[in-house]
Amino acid sequence: MRVNSDVEFVILNRDESLYQEALDLRFNLFFEPANLPRDVLFDDNETRSTHLTLTQDGALLAYLRLTEASDKHFQLSQMVVTPKHQGKGLGRRLVTEAIQYLRARSATDVTLSARLHAIRLYTSVGFVVSGDVYLSKRTGVEHINMHLKIK
């Protein structure tokens, strides 16, 4: 089942309530299962990143964070979809919107560290694997680096 087309792509400000919801979602799905403290969310990239979401009728559906690592090179991280909306194509749609956002800003490439179950999603929009599987230092979950050249 796909979500209706009235889904909206939104760039969040950190003072919005949706940003707080995104923080809660990220913590609940990524860090709480690893028994990490909530302050793990506030790494060096949090305040200098762009926070992108998909919403429907004002409700958060999906989130990701983009950080400029160097001139025109970005890192995509913390991509998450609300549990009740997973499997409906929202992750792919949000990543596609993020690529368009980066293309409009003349970005040259974007990298990410994917959980292994998400490799198919990222390859479906053009990312390629660039490295070996490794364990996240924070969560102990297996990840792999991926890369996309933006044309």
Rank of each mutant, 00 (worst) to 15 (best):
E16M: 15
N35Q: 12
F27A: 01
V40A: 08
S17T: 13
S106W: 02
P33K: 08
T47I: 05
E46W: 01
I11L: 15
D109R: 11
F74T: 03
T53V: 15
E97D: 13
L64M: 12
F31C: 00
H51L: 06
S77N: 12
I11A: 08
I11Y: 02
G126V: 01
E97P: 02
S49V: 08
L36G: 03
F127H: 05
A98W: 05
S70K: 13
V40W: 07
L94E: 11
D44L: 05
E32S: 11
R14P: 00
D71E: 15
L61T: 03
T96E: 12
G126H: 03
H85S: 14
V10T: 13
G140R: 03
E8S: 12
Y101M: 05
R26N: 10
E8Y: 06
S106M: 04
S130I: 09
A59M: 08
R14Y: 02
L52A: 09
K72R: 14
A69Y: 08
V129N: 03
K137G: 13
A98V: 07
E16A: 10
S17C: 02
R26D: 09
R48I: 11
S124L: 07
G89H: 03
S106K: 10
K72T: 10
L12D: 04
S124H: 07
N28H: 07
T50M: 01
T108R: 10
P33R: 09
S106E: 14
S77V: 00
L102E: 04
H73W: 00
R93L: 15
T96D: 13
L102C: 04
T139V: 09
I119D: 01
G91A: 13
A34S: 14
D57S: 08
E32T: 05
R38Y: 07
E46N: 04
M79W: 03
A118V: 10
A104F: 01
R115S: 11
G126R: 03
L66M: 15
K137D: 15
S70N: 10
K84H: 13
Q78H: 13
M79C: 12
G58E: 07
Q100T: 08
V7A: 12
T108Q: 15
Y19I: 05
L12I: 04
S70Q: 06
D15P: 05
M79T: 12
L135H: 13
D71C: 09
L61I: 15
T123F: 07
E97R: 06
R92C: 09
T53I: 07
H51A: 06
I99P: 08
A107Y: 04
A107I: 10
L76K: 05
G126M: 03
Q75R: 14
N45K: 14
T123L: 05
Q75M: 11
Q86M: 11
R38N: 01
L18G: 07
D39G: 00
H51V: 02
A69P: 00
S124T: 07
D109H: 14
D132I: 03
L64I: 02
R14I: 14
G89I: 06
R105G: 06
S49F: 02
S124Q: 12
I119A: 06
L23W: 00
D24R: 13
A22Y: 10
S130M: 05
L102T: 09
L76Q: 08
P37S: 13
F30V: 00
G87M: 11
P37K: 12
K84Q: 14
F27W: 08
G131K: 07
D109N: 14
T53P: 05
L52H: 06
D57T: 03
L112P: 03
T139P: 05
